[in-house]
Computed example of a mutant assay.
Amino acid sequence: MAAYSGRGLHGHIVETIGGRILDGTYAPGQTVHPDELERELDVSKTVVREALRVLASKGLVDSRPKRGTFVRPRSEWSLLDASLLRWQRRGAPDRRFLADLAEVRAIIEPAGARLAATRRTEADLAAMREALAVLAEPGADASAVIEADLRFHRALLAAAHNELMGRLEVVVEAGLRERDRIVHSGERWPDAVPAHRAVLDAVAAGDPAGAAAAVESLLEQASTDLAHAAGGEAGPHARNSGARNSGDSAAG
């Protein structure tokens, strides 16, 4: 479920066509003409054919005799594919998509925290502490905060030591990146360090119920912060990105 790792021209063409499908430029059922793509993108037939093959493997397109290549229904897309999750974050936020991601996170992360509280190692705790330290760093910019937030949640899932759950980090990351992009778009953002610290403390204490409850509280705060940000408000407990007196910074 990893994102498509193609580099150079071929990777660019995959991203271009895939992005057009995800943003609705090419609608489900619409025919995609390879020869037109060759001329428009100024690439060879081989490059376009290989790009469409990659997109077909993700459920986005199909080819049939007499009908040609066409966009498949959204219900047949591999929506958990990392590339699709990334492409879907482009442009204006899709509120339904954000809501779906939030619901899935609410299922995955509390369960992961329960397991983490009983299975975490010192290395797992160290990874979470390192991420939290960046979140709490005075003057940390939005980019650093977002990346540290992602590291914290990845470390939490990794601490569950469940291989299949670990693969679901692509869903968590997609939800986090889009949420953080919106919430951290202004000069002020909400302070979520205490909520993250509560999760870490419960996991470190070996308290499964407490860890799950702390994650649920964190996710609740994240949803509230997103609603405030989408409405153009700073939200409760807002911090100024340039001067955080307490040393706390925000995340989701």
Results as ranks from 00 to 15, higher is better:
104 V>W: 14
130 E>G: 11
144 A>K: 14
41 L>N: 05
41 L>E: 03
141 D>N: 09
115 L>R: 13
206 G>R: 12
32 V>G: 11
137 E>S: 14
234 A>Q: 11
218 L>Y: 00
114 R>F: 09
241 S>L: 14
79 L>G: 06
245 N>P: 14
159 A>I: 04
118 T>W: 01
64 R>A: 15
204 A>Y: 11
138 P>N: 06
131 A>N: 07
74 R>D: 07
170 V>M: 02
28 P>R: 02
200 L>E: 06
14 V>Q: 08
168 L>H: 01
19 G>F: 04
76 E>G: 05
21 I>S: 01
107 I>Q: 15
153 H>V: 06
197 R>W: 03
161 H>D: 04
23 D>L: 12
135 L>G: 06
239 R>N: 09
92 A>T: 11
8 G>Q: 08
136 A>S: 15
84 L>G: 10
134 V>I: 15
180 D>W: 00
213 A>Y: 00
91 G>R: 08
232 G>L: 08
191 D>C: 13
110 P>E: 02
187 E>I: 03
38 E>P: 04
131 A>P: 08
174 A>W: 02
196 H>N: 13
217 S>I: 00
184 H>M: 11
143 S>I: 09
82 A>W: 02
187 E>W: 05
149 D>W: 05
96 R>W: 04
96 R>K: 12
148 A>W: 06
77 W>M: 05
195 A>G: 02
3 A>S: 10
16 T>C: 06
238 A>H: 12
63 S>T: 15
64 R>I: 12
137 E>Q: 15
163 E>I: 03
24 G>I: 10
